[in-house]
Design a protein around this nucleic acid. Structure first.
Length: 365
DNA sequence: TAAACGTGGGT
DNA sequence: TACCCAAGTTT
């Protein structure tokens, strides 16, 4: 549908007013340079750190990212260091953050930046867009934040702010082009990097999905949705598809010394390239919860009394956990290996399998 | 264009 | 509890 103007006594949204708000209320984050350092001392953030943070922040909360960002920058302080890293180590370090194709693309991107750009991130949006794992949002974000060049940065926060500001009633994601067009009209020539971060901070702290703090918003008198009292109705979204339940069986073989049998998942698809305990296929058939055909050994597998549940983006999973104690000299089947207790925590185990192993061992992994 | 792709925290 | 949500990208 079309955008409505704000109320008759409204004022046009002023980018300067948002920047002034940001100067006072910006959040201090490990990958950021403060507005004062930027404006007074001409400081720009390290593009490597900006890029790394933006990849980690894709569909992921700031709280979840902080520790991983710290660990990655400590271990791999530069894009050269990351490009030279062992991919398995990167996957291990990423374990638990989710969306694991990001980790593989992260490594590939670092290699490309080193091999094709002399170890420097390009400042051009179009060049950034060609790099693995960098899409429209991230290319614009790096251009604006790392290089302080004008770019229209549209993430979920900006979508919410803009659809409310202009009361855009067209449902997402169809409204994306309209949102980008409106966002572009707001983006200032001066301080585009701070402006981008200001829009995102505004969405994260004031223009929140539920109960937005409109009284504290620098654009309150510019907001069409606020004028109509309909701010919580935006952005309009299409109804979500139902999430089916799937069932499966996981096999935790425990060697005498406490080592657990694990294997690598196929490189692509769900949890691609990550580590798992041997498991049967996850299907909507409940019989999968009682299927021993994927067991790595013959034996009296005992059933754990509690099934392990985990929710993915597009389905819910209920896993039966079966446990078997095996002697110390039992060889791992082809393609599998024994992970000793001291190394188990460092494996590239996604959360879904960390839950399974923890349940089987009776202690956190 | 729509579906695949994780996880943990908030309400 | 169940659902929603978070600084999206890829196919």
């Amino acid at each position: 549908m079309s955008a409505r103007p704000a109320s008759p006594d409204s004022v046009p949204p002023d980018p300067g007013a948002l920047l002034a708000w940001y100067d006072r209320h910006h959040r201090r984050l490990p990958w950021r340079v403060t507005p004062v350092d930027r404006e007074s001392h001409g400081l720009l953030p390290d593009p490597y750190r900006v890029w790394l943070s933006e990849i980690m922040l894709q569909q992921t909360t700031v709280a979840a990212v902080k520790g991983y960002f710290e660990a990655f920058t400590q271990r791999w302080p530069t894009v050269e260091a990351l490009a030279a890293a062992d991919e398995a180590d990167v996957m291990k370090a990423w374990a638990g953050l989710g969306y694991y194709s990001r980790a593989r693309n992260l490594k590939a991107c670092a290699e490309t930046v080193v091999a094709q750009h002399g170890g420097r991130f390009p400042a051009e949006e179009s060049a950034l867009l060609d790099l693995p794992g960098i899409g429209a949002y991230t290319a614009a974000a790096i251009t604006a934040i790392a290089f302080d060049r004008k770019a229209t940065v549209v993430d979920g926060n900006v979508e919410r702010v803009v659809t409310r500001l202009f009361a855009i009633e067209e449902p997402m994601p169809a409204a994306k082009p309209a949102v980008k067009r409106q966002a572009a009209t707001l983006t200032p020539d001066r301080r585009p990097g701070d402006f981008a971060q200001a829009m995102m901070d505004l969405g994260a702290t004031i223009c929140t999905p539920k109960k937005p703090a409109c009284a504290l918003c620098p654009w309150e008198r510019s907001c069409a949705a606020r004028a109509a009292g309909t701010q919580e109705l935006f952005p309009v979204k299409a109804p979500k598809a139902e999430r089916p339940t799937r069932y499966g069986t996981a096999f935790v073989a425990i060697r005498a010394d406490g080592a657990v049998l694990v294997r690598r998942r196929p490189p692509k698809g769900l949890l691609g390239g990550m580590t798992e305990v041997p498991s049967g296929a996850w299907t909507t058939a409940k019989s999968a919860a009682d299927d021993l055909s994927a067991a790595p050994f013959e034996g009296p597998w005992r059933v754990l009394p509690t099934r392990v549940e985990h929710t993915f983006t597009h389905f819910h999973l209920i896993q039966t956990v079966r446990v078997l104690d095996v002697p110390q000299d039992r060889a791992a089947p082809a393609g599998m290996w024994w992970s000793p207790p001291a190394e188990l925590g460092g494996e590239a185990l996604p959360s879904v399998f960390r839950k399974v192993v923890s349940a089987a061992l009776g202690r956190p992994v």
